[in-house]
């Protein structure tokens, strides 16, 4: 038997591992604590006022009393406009980048560069752009349509980036597999690549929805301030986030109403996101099993 080789240095100390684990746990706890504190604070101030009449009623006394019914509808309509534009535009752009153009080519670099720059544009700038382009040039005025389309431009980079990385993360042998069976590119994209990338695309959409619903600056100059019930996409309509901003800045003694509205906004984001996830799961399962 050979004697064990003497070590030049002692083994790395175990306490370091423990300290690292402890530091990680602390950071995680603080992060969660922040979220819990925020929700608790909002709930404490806002929950008592939340009722069916609050959710469906009209604004009274500049927002000090009454409900947020018209705003809820406006917000949802703005979101519908936004998604109707951004989903086809974002997926189309990502598909083109990943399937139709060579990576690293000038065209691909230009488009990805442009999209990435778009992501770093402050939202107030989108608001000004939307007001001029959609509001004045395309004559949409202060409307839900203007607001929704402006938001679509704003969250486009999120959707392009997540969809692109979802497509690029697909198994590399999927494309030769489909080509080897003589499938057209369209079949390959529609029946194989998009379904496989769907979970990633849905993540992009939910992130985008979160951004869109919480956006204020881009909406002030585009969808406007109106607190009436919207009757079409061409009407002006105040989004929940704009309402919170307005209450906090312009209406004294409305703090509790702002908290209640914020609480509803938070819940709305949660509901819309879970709906998107549930829908995609349902769709995936159906594709998997039948037809």
């Amino acid at each position: 038997m050979t004697p064990p080789t003497p070590r030049a240095r002692p083994v790395a100390p175990v306490w370091l591992d423990r300290a690292l684990a402890f530091a990680g746990a602390t950071a995680a706890l603080l992060s969660f604590g922040l979220f819990a504190w925020l929700v608790w604070d909002l709930a404490r101030l806002g929950l008592p006022r939340i009722s069916w009449t609050f959710l469906t009623g009209e604004i009274e006394d500049a927002g000090r009393s009454g409900g947020i019914g018209p705003l809820l509808v406006s917000t949802l309509l703005i979101l519908v406009c936004c998604l109707a534009l951004v989903i086809p535009l974002g997926t189309g752009c990502a598909l083109w980048l990943s399937e139709f153009v060579r990576r690293g080519s000038l065209a691909a670099r230009l488009v990805t560069g442009g999209v990435d720059l778009l992501a770093s544009v402050p939202s107030i700038v989108f608001g000004l752009f939307g007001m001029v382009f959609f509001g004045q040039t395309l004559k949409m005025g202060f409307s839900i349509l203007s607001g929704g389309l402006t938001l679509a431009c704003m969250i486009l980079p999120i959707l392009v980036r997540t969809t692109l990385s979802a497509l690029e993360a697909l198994p590399a042998d999927l494309r030769p597999a489909s080509a080897g069976l003589g499938l057209t590119r369209t079949t390959s994209i529609v029946k194989l690549l998009l379904p496989a990338a769907l979970p990633g695309i849905v993540v992009g959409i939910t992130l985008g929805i979160g951004r869109a619903l919480s956006e204020t600056a881009a909406l002030i100059f585009t969808s406007g301030y109106s607190i009436r019930w919207p009757s079409s996409f061409w009407d002006s309509g105040r989004a929940l986030s704009v309402h919170i901003y307005d209450l906090t800045l312009n209406v004294p003694q409305s703090g509790a109403m702002a908290s209640s509205t914020a609480l509803v906004l938070l819940a709305l984001i949660l509901v819309v996101n879970s709906a998107a996830v549930a829908l995609s799961e349902h769709w995936l399962r159906r594709r998997h099993q039948t037809s």
Partner: peptide
């Protein structure tokens, strides 16, 4: 496309589509 139907190929690594077994036949 019709050439590849007539001259099929099987690769080194198995590459079924990440869908149901049935869909693997239905699509092509």
């Amino acid at each position: 496309l019709s050439l590849r139907r007539r001259v099929g190929i099987v690769f080194q690594r198995p590459n079924p589509f990440p869908q149901s077994i049935r869909r693997n036949f239905e699509i092509p």
